[in-house]
């Protein structure tokens, strides 16, 4: 499992983004988190070379949601051989935008006193779900009607054993807000909304039947290319 946090949102465990053998002994592992509304890239830097590393800096290529470092990479003391340090890099979402493939891909350059190194990583789109993403009920109904059927995508979430209220609470801790709950023919149905940092809204219908571990998720969004990533977020949140 991941590291718990105050708001209860799930954080993916760190993985290796830059192996030491590709970066003259510098190993970087990391993950992304949204902590109380603040976006962070959380990094572990390990020196697997035989000399000291210093003068660290980081830069992002333009990306789909304008992610950019909101400050310098704070490595205040040189990194000795075999030493690991943990660094949190605050992020903003007002950097230059360029649509990436896949959508949530981020290209990063890290520099130290030895060289400049490049790697790619992917962030969970749930990191971009804002705290004020609960849509007015009237607006939800109008928007749901307004978004064409071609923009609706349907997904199955398997092996889920939460009831509707538990699922709703869990999703809310990741800024997926329940606007209405209904029951029709024995199925519990949640209507939910999400707003991304770039003001894209995603509307969802989550169906579940007591005793059936497979949920049906329908997503409606004007920018429908985000839907598969939002589905991944539902899976990640509900199963962790």
């Amino acid at each position: 499992g991941g590291v718990g946090m105050a708001s209860g949102a799930y954080v993916v465990p760190k993985s290796v983004w830059l192996p030491a053998m590709k970066a003259k002994g510098l190993e970087i592992s990391g993950t992304f988190a949204r902590r109380a509304g603040v976006l962070q890239m959380e990094l572990s830097l390990t020196n697997k070379a035989m000399s000291i590393m210093s003068d660290f800096a980081i830069q992002f290529n333009r990306n789909s949601f304008g992610l950019a470092p909101a400050g310098p990479l704070q490595v205040l003391t040189p990194l000795s051989p075999n030493q690991t340090i943990e660094v949190s890099l605050p992020l903003s979402t007002v950097g230059p935008v360029m649509k990436m493939e896949p959508l949530t891909n981020l290209q990063v350059a890290v520099k130290n006193n030895i060289d400049v190194f490049y790697f790619s990583c992917q962030y969970p789109i749930s990191m971009l779900f804002v705290e004020d993403g609960k849509m007015e009920r009237q607006v939800f109904l109008a928007t749901w009607k307004d978004i064409p059927n071609e923009n609706e995508a349907q997904f199955q979430i398997k092996d889920c054993h939460l009831n509707a209220d538990a699922a709703s609470a869990k999703l809310q801790s990741s800024n997926i807000f329940t606007i209405a709950k209904r029951n029709a023919e024995g199925q519990d149905i949640l209507y939910q909304s999400i707003r991304l940092t770039n003001s894209i809204w995603v509307l969802s219908e989550l169906r579940m039947q007591p005793g059936n571990p497979s949920y049906t998720l329908s997503l409606k969004c004007r920018a429908s290319e985000v839907s598969p990533f939002v589905f991944q977020s539902y899976e990640m949140v509900l199963k962790n």
Binding site: Q138, L141, W144, R182, N183, A184, I189, E205
Partner: peptide, 20 residues
């Protein structure tokens, strides 16, 4: 009154998607 109307609208939405 508006709230009642919205409650009903969500019920209709759920119903219409269950039995299209």
């Amino acid at each position: 009154e508006l709230e009642d109307g919205l409650d009903e609208a969500f019920s209709r939405l759920a119903e219409s998607r269950t039995n299209p």
